Every structure is written in structure tokens, then in C-alpha cells.
Amino acid sequence: MLDDQDRALLRRWQDDPDLSPAQLAEAMGLPAARVSRRIARLQEAGVLTGLRAVIDWRALGYGVEISLRITLEKSAPRAFDEFLAAAREVPEVVEIQTFLGRVDVRLGVIARDLHHWQALWRDRILTLPHLADIEALMTVATVKAEEALPL
């Protein structure tokens, strides 16, 4: 699906995502029109799904990161859907993952400090519907968080 030029383009853009398509073309020694066509083809194929701003939540005053492993009470027919809908409504929930196995859902939650976390826990997390079991893990350090792919 990807040829060597596509891979080179994606590697270069991952290395410097601030490059415009014209700057990317210049850096690669290719005509801008060819790079623009390749970018459009990669978007149409779903390889490039968009460009985004990456915001460091720590710089905005959020100093606590918690990972919640949740098992749901699944006796209600729509328990999973109702839980996910409610979890999406909590602004401090920045990531939701679903699993097969003993744990059903993992929530990534941020808080300004421990006082804020306690309020979130009591007022927002513990009130989510269909909770059967919940384990909270506080992040001590992020050792690796790489978004670039090995192309």
C-alpha cells in the first residue's frame, strides 16, 4: 500500500510536523504538487486522519494522572453503552479504552492536584453507572509516550 516515497514523506513529517506541505516537498527535494497529491492520497486511504495540536496538560496546571481499570456490572442490557456515555461527559477523562477480559474499561483521568482528584473520585467517577469494580493507579512517571510510528 505504501511505497518508499510515502514512507519517507511520513517519516519526515513525523520528525517535523510543523512543516507545511510546500516545506515538506522542499525538504524532500520533490515538487510541491507531487507531495500534495501523495498527502491527498494518504488522507483518502485513511493513513493520515488529520492534523492536530498536542497540548501538554501539565503546562495547564494538571499535575496528577490516574489510570482507572474498571469492571462493569453487566446485568443491565445497555450497561456498557450507558457507562461509556457517562464517562465521556467527564471533562477530566482524557482517554477511554475498552478491553476483552477481566477489565472492561480503562479511563485515563487528569486532575490539577490530589484535592481535585478526591473531588473527581467522589463526585464524578464513583457516580458513573454500572460500576462493579474499580482500581485506581496513579502515574508516577511516563517512561515512553511515542506517537511516531516506525516507518
Rank of each mutant, 00 (worst) to 15 (best):
V94C: 01
I55N: 11
S75H: 11
R11M: 10
D18P: 10
Q14Y: 06
E147M: 13
L149N: 11
P150E: 14
L126H: 13
I134D: 08
T127V: 08
E95D: 09
R12L: 12
I39R: 07
P21Q: 13
T142E: 14
L2V: 05
L126D: 07
P77F: 04
S67E: 11
R52F: 11
L72K: 01
L10D: 07
L9E: 10
M1V: 08
L42G: 03
D56L: 06
S20Q: 04
V64E: 01
I70L: 02
W13I: 02
D18E: 14
A141M: 14
A40D: 13
S67P: 01
P17E: 04
L24C: 05
A148W: 10
D15P: 05
D123K: 12
E135M: 13
A141R: 15
A8C: 06
L42D: 01
I96K: 01
A8Q: 13
A33V: 13
M138D: 12
E73G: 09
F99K: 01
G63K: 06
Q14I: 05
I55E: 14
A141V: 15
V93I: 03
I66Q: 02
E92A: 01
D16Y: 07
A76R: 02
A79W: 02
R12H: 08
V105S: 01
A22N: 12
R37Q: 14
P31W: 12
I39T: 04
V105A: 00
A111M: 04
L48G: 03
R106M: 10
E82K: 01
P31F: 12
G50Y: 04
E73Y: 08
P17H: 03
L42C: 02
P17T: 01
R88C: 00
R7K: 09
R12I: 08
I96D: 02
Q14D: 08
I125A: 07
M1A: 14
L68V: 02
L24K: 02
R112Q: 15
H130D: 12
P129C: 14
Q5C: 10
F83Q: 03
